[in-house]
């Protein structure tokens, strides 16, 4: 199965009714990079993540997924995508282990208890809570479970929408480290966040959207103060 090495976004536009969500966004994502996708609410970040996840259709333009020079399409792309969205994407009536086992089975992955526990250890979900229904979880615990589900498949394209929401400072720092490690292993990581502190110094690609347009893009690492300045000068 190919690992994605490049995602080429070309002149992507999307409207919802009369509202313009994206207006001709062109950018490229490369393996081994972490892109911070920034912008105010309604700037089009979540729509762009939806299009990258293949679950939202662009009105025009294209998104090409490549492994080497070969295009990757359909189910092969979906197999490579891990997604953390606003919602947990997990079943409230199932426990953490059951959720992971179900999704692992759909990917034909090993759903043994040891494998699932290793993943839950990795995201720091309390062992005592793992057999409880997810509806009893706190926001932070749900976020950890959602992250475990997203990482379960060892995705080469990781799409994260506000991943730090609900996590305490320790959890956010740990997640930031985890994302950095994934990037170092060659994954393409795209993070939509307003928590600039959590991603400062970790990203090597910054893109800022304003009213559906890409108004700033640079491949470079920024500290918190630099990110804050960039955000205020371009997102507003």
């Amino acid at each position: 199965m190919p690992s994605l090495e490049r995602v080429e976004i070309k002149k992507v536009t999307k409207r919802f009714g009369g509202e313009r969500a994206l207006a001709g966004v062109t950018m490229e994502l490369a393996a081994g990079s972490m892109c911070a996708l920034l912008g105010h609410n309604g700037a089009g970040k979540t729509t762009l993540l939806g299009i990258l996840s293949t679950l939202t259709r662009a009105d025009s333009g294209s998104v090409a997924y490549r492994a080497g020079d070969k295009p990757v399409t359909g189910a092969a792309v979906r197999r490579e995508i891990g997604m953390l969205a606003h919602a947990s994407l997990c079943y409230a009536e199932l426990s953490a282990r059951e959720n992971l086992a179900f999704f692992a089975s759909l990917y034909d992955l090993d759903a043994g208890r040891a494998t699932l526990d290793a993943m839950l250890d990795r995201v720091g979900l309390d062992p005592k809570a793992r057999d409880r229904a997810a509806r009893t979880y706190s926001r932070g615990m749900l976020q950890r479970l959602a992250l475990a589900r997203a990482l379960l498949t060892r995705p080469s394209l990781l799409l994260l929408d506000e991943p730090f929401t609900g996590l305490d400072r320790g959890g956010a720092i740990s997640l930031g480290g985890e994302l950095g490690a994934l990037r170092d292993q060659g994954a393409i990581v795209v993070v939509v966040t307003h928590d600039l502190e959590a991603i400062a110094g970790r990203t090597d690609h910054v893109a800022i959207l304003r009213r559906g347009q890409l108004v700033f893009e640079d491949r470079g690492s920024y500290d918190y103060e630099q990110l804050k300045d960039l955000y205020h000068s371009h997102a507003n």
């Binding site: 679950l55 995508i81 997604m83 919602a87 994407l89 409230a92 009536e93 759909l106």
Partner: peptide, 18 residues
């Protein structure tokens, strides 16, 4: 509605399962 509550339909559609 159950698939809507935590957006799990999206999770299902995101899997490589046809």
């Amino acid at each position: 509605d159950r698939e809507r509550e935590n957006d799990t339909m999206r999770a299902l559609l995101l899997t490589p399962v046809p």
